[in-house]
Amino acid sequence: MNISSIRIGAIALVIAFGVSCKKEVTKQYAIDEVELYTSASEKKNLKTDEQFISILYSDLFGTAITNTKLQELNQAYTSMGDKVLVIDILIKSMLADPSAEVPTKAAMDAQPANFVKTAYKTLLVRNPTRQEEWFLVNQIEKNKVLEPIDIYYAILTSDEYRYY
């Protein structure tokens, strides 16, 4: 199965967080399952603008983007010359949308390792390396002000998220 075609098709695998005593639940909103990358180095291709917007939307809202919504967001994207800035604005707007599927702080603080694994699988379509998991868990435990939205924002604005 071709990984990139699955991603471009805006397939969303959303891991829902429950309370700490619950088992991790996997919700699948689309037909195909998402095959995880084994490492970041497999990602060689820059997402096109439309792919980026579509995948961003499905990653955050757990559903494939509609043509109308894609057109609206693409309109905003092409309206500003600084693409790094406009992408940043789009990501912040979506993350701040109350319907964005970002785990709660309580869930993150209760099981930071689970949060990190899920964030990686949902957004970067791979498991974190041991080093990555350690670093992020450490950040969460050390910085009590850190919110899930901060980590999501950092991942979504990372270089890796631009690639598939």
């Binding site: 970041a40 180095s41 390396t129 080093q131 990555e132 670093f135 992020l136 950040q139 901060d150 980590i151 950092a154 991942i155 604005t157 990372s158 270089d159 890796e160 690639y163």
Partner: peptide, 11 residues
Amino acid sequence: DIRKFLNNNFG
């Protein structure tokens, strides 16, 4: 800081 870490890891 987190983004910088991620970018460094990515290459």
